[in-house]
Amino acid sequence: MLLLQNVRKYYDRREILSIASLTLENDIYVVKGENGSGKSTLLKMIAGLIPFQGEIRIDGVDLKAAPVAYRGAVGWSAAEPLFPDFLTGKEIIAFYNGLRRKNGSGHNELIELLHMTEFIDQKTGTYSSGMLKKLSLILAFTAQPKLLVLDEPFITLDDHAIDQVNRLIIRMHEDQKSFVLMSTHQGTVGLPSFRKLRIHDHQISTES
């Protein structure tokens, strides 16, 4: 369960988000809202990347009180990810696994699923934006977190990759009981079922 309590975010004293209370049960959520409504800001706050006022908890673990445990439970993928251009995809995965102390080879299946096998040994400086996005998603899924936070996971992806990412999201949710929070501008989301969150006028509301 993800709990947001009295969460507020300001930029230059301008209120961006104001959430008095929001409780999300284990499910797949898609955050919708206009450009600049604060979708990415909300996701970054939940991923622990930017400061905010208030409380965010996942299964009782408070982001501010137990930052390491909280971050261990969250996997993150940015809308427009950047990586050091002098490292290969494989080296970045090794670095990420080292940080999360993961020794498994779960990423190999993801590399294959997203058709990254022939590029994974190349430097990311040679990657297209779609390939950078795939690498970022591989890292997020490899973490096998309780909460998967994906900012615009489908932009720049080809049709095959979009389909595979949808399948992976469903698999993570069903098999590992992860819950997924993502934003997308895509008109249709290829998921059989999901719940909508809408950000409007700095407030967030759930839609059926």
Partner: peptide, 17 residues
């Protein structure tokens, strides 16, 4: 700046201060 821009995904990892 490099660290924040290019290693953001890693900065979200469970590393103590």
């Amino acid at each position: 700046e490099f660290s924040y821009a290019h290693l953001e995904q890693m900065r979200a990892g469970p590393i103590s201060l």
